[in-house]
C-alpha cells in the first residue's frame, strides 16, 4: 500500500490531519505526520531531515506520496528526496494538492490498493471537491 507523509509548518496541524485521515479511512493506511522545528518547539517550520525519516518509516514498494501545506513544506520535501538513495527516490512523489482534502483523498485511494500515480492524482483532484 502506498505510504503517505503529511508535512505542515505546524506539528499540531500535521498530526491533526493524520488523526482525521486515520479516523475516516480505517483500512490500516500507512501515514506519518511531520511538522515544526526540533530546535525550537514554539517555532513553526519544516525540517527536511525529519521528512526523510518519515518517508523511510512509511516506505513501501508501491511508493510514498507527500502532501504538504505550502512554501518550505514543499522545499523540505524536495531536499528529503535528494537525500534518498536513487532506487527509493523514484518511488516518492510530491502532491500539488490541498493539505486536508488531498491527504484524505490520497489515503482513500491508497487503502483501496491504488498505485502511486493514482494516489497522487486523487490528492491533486481533491482541489476540485465541491463542499456546498
Amino acid at each position: 500500500m502506498v505510504g503517505i507523509v503529511i508535512i505542515s509548518h505546524s506539528k499540531k496541524l500535521a498530526e491533526g490531519v493524520k488523526e482525521l485521515v486515520l479516523q475516516m479511512v480505517r483500512e490500516g493506511v500507512k501515514i506519518e505526520a511531520v511538522g515544526g522545528v526540533a530546535a525550537d518547539p514554539k517555532a513553526l517550520g519544516t525540517d527536511p531531515l525529519r521528512v526523510k525519516e518519515a518517508i523511510e518509516k512509511v516506505f513501501d514498494e508501491k511508493g510514498v506520496l507527500i502532501v504538504g501545506d505550502f512554501g518550505s513544506a514543499i522545499l523540505s520535501a524536495r531536499v528529503a528526496l535528494k537525500m534518498l538513495p536513487e532506487e527509493k527516490r523514484k518511488l516518492v512523489a510530491i502532491a500539488n494538492a490541498p493539505l486536508v482534502e488531498g491527504a484524505f483523498a490520497a489515503a482513500v485511494e491508497a487503502s483501496t490498493g491504488g498505485d502511486l500515480e493514482s494516489v497522487k492524482e486523487a490528492a491533486e483532484e481533491a482541489r476540485n471537491l465541491k463542499k456546498i
Partner: peptide, 18 residues
C-alpha cells in the same frame, strides 16, 4: 548545511541547507 536544514524551519532552511 545539515545544521541549517535541521533548524532554520522556513524556506531558507532547505535553500541555505542545499
Amino acid at each position: 548545511g545539515m545544521a541549517l536544514l535541521e533548524t532554520v524551519g522556513g524556506a531558507a532552511g532547505p535553500l541555505y541547507g542545499m
